[in-house]
Design a protein around this nucleic acid. Sequence first.
DNA 1: TATGAATGAGCATTCATTCAT
DNA 2: TATGAATGAATGCTCATTCAT
Lengths: 187, 187, 187, 187
Amino acid sequence: MDNKKQHILDTALSLFIEDGYENTPTSAISKKSNVATGTLFHHFHSKHQILDELYIDSKRSLRLELIKNLQSTNDQQDILHLIWENYSRWAVSNPNKFRLLSRYSTSKMISAEAREQVDNTYQELINVLNESREKGLLAKIPLECVIMLTKLHFACAAEYFITHPEALQKKKLPKRLFQAYWRAIST
Amino acid sequence: MDNKKQHILDTALSLFIEDGYENTPTSAISKKSNVATGTLFHHFHSKHQILDELYIDSKRSLRLELIKNLQSTNDQQDILHLIWENYSRWAVSNPNKFRLLSRYSTSKMISAEAREQVDNTYQELINVLNESREKGLLAKIPLECVIMLTKLHFACAAEYFITHPEALQKKKLPKRLFQAYWRAIST
Amino acid sequence: MDNKKQHILDTALSLFIEDGYENTPTSAISKKSNVATGTLFHHFHSKHQILDELYIDSKRSLRLELIKNLQSTNDQQDILHLIWENYSRWAVSNPNKFRLLSRYSTSKMISAEAREQVDNTYQELINVLNESREKGLLAKIPLECVIMLTKLHFACAAEYFITHPEALQKKKLPKRLFQAYWRAIST
Amino acid sequence: MDNKKQHILDTALSLFIEDGYENTPTSAISKKSNVATGTLFHHFHSKHQILDELYIDSKRSLRLELIKNLQSTNDQQDILHLIWENYSRWAVSNPNKFRLLSRYSTSKMISAEAREQVDNTYQELINVLNESREKGLLAKIPLECVIMLTKLHFACAAEYFITHPEALQKKKLPKRLFQAYWRAIST
DNA sequence: TATGAATGAGCATTCATTCAT
DNA sequence: TATGAATGAATGCTCATTCAT
């Protein structure tokens, strides 16, 4: 059943994060998943495809969370704050998916086909940034830079919350981290 | 001669950046370096050591540039600005070294011994941040976060300048990018 | 139903001819036959058995055609001509069966059991050759050689007619090709 | 040294003839050659290349023998007889090379590149047949058929002499076998 | 110091076959 | 009778490393 395929994916994800894609033999994946070599290749036609599927799944999972509850406000900063919180919460709940994206998003290991399927993950976020920029809310740096800074600030916060899970529960630090981000990109 | 060893290191660096450490066979390094298989292992006792040496060399190269002309001012922001500029210039001059550090600094591929030899690369930078913090110039977020944000902002700017080399010559953008950084970490 | 088994055999025959027995996975056979993996192994207990059955079937099919209308004459040359024509017609009608026999008759892939079941395919032909020889009609070369030459001439003509089907309809070429054969083996 | 590569080729040839290309694992070749797996792939970049090299080598070896002593006569039949004898002698001396060509010449296993390198093996023979045909010495069948019959008769004789080596020493049988061939193709 | 043939453990993948449903 | 997920031995090939020259 699909159970088994998912189990292989879960195992592969943790091994890829722990040891890296190229340092994880398929034999390690199948062994840790308690399935035979053949079973792995019955569900995936290559080791590569496993990474692709993990990438697509992680991106989709992120996207789903990223845009939750967005309709409630019109203030650009509030919207960004909401997205920022969604991102952090998602990262803390899915640390390995978060790390997979950090590590392989920009690498050549992900196939172009896989990328195409999820290339709109940050669309809403980019739209918000674009609107803010047009409204003159943002610093006069290229949108490209704003996006890069956004991703980096988000990742930075996420990384911190993953290693300090209690920090997300407190009020002040999350607020201050978001403000650091907002100050960075705003005028 | 040492010429040959250096040539191997240069070749390996570009291949590691282009294809990744794991996807670069030693045979590719020796072939592109126009030396025999045995020659490579005459100069390095393992493939691993090549990465370690590149790491150490890159870190040292960075450190040397990072702290240039630091004595001329006492203002914390000015000092950070200087370091930030030094970093950007170094990255543009040594894009592959910069990328090597981005990619492998936090990976398990670098041996603990190699790390030890260069673990003080950012010492001055950290000192400055610490002093600034004690003077109350910085936002009230953990030093750890400040350091992370610093590295990310530096890397972000460097990445942009590497792909847009002309931007570094202009005056406004570099200034604004640094200000974005400063706003992020300061009160 | 038997329909399905036959369909698998037909598919396997064409794949074995196209790609060779060893280069045809059972999965390719079942896929092209639109049956499940298990279904194939429900009808045949091994891939080997498929080849054996195809071999037996091809030999039987050939034998049935080979000896058609033989009773009408007593002249040895005429009998051989008739057999020769039967063979050519059969080959043109069953090119893949013809090729299967060309390719695998002498190979180790066919089991001894399969061979036993059809080892009398050429019995009548051999009888005719033997009689002709005893009557002094044939060249003084070993019967073994006569049989080899016979098979080769037959195969040569068949191959030509398969690739030039129109040639079989004409009168002269078939006649001349048979005469070439007859001249080769006769005194 | 080249010694080792040649040894691998020799071993592979005998295994390919004995068991067939597909049924011969590279591990069997390296084991029987007393070299390591890696050594085999140091000399050949794929199993396929071994077959290609054997094919090229066999064809070249054949060609060298085929046209020996051809200049001594102008009579077409005599020339063909000489070639026929050269072929038989070569086959008896190189039975495995002969069988390799019989088995794989027309198979898809041989790469187009390998074929190109030796596609003129039978050029002289074909030239002689063509001239004979223009002189009206041959039966009025397509040259294509004449060539096919030639190859088959040659192979038939070779096969017989390989299994009955003493027959080649006698005078009568070789003569009669050649005459069978000549009768087949001549008027 | 330099060479490159030789090594063999390790890897991704294939495929005939089994078996629970 | 039919299915297709599961199996695992076997295969072609890679690659870091060694060593005799």
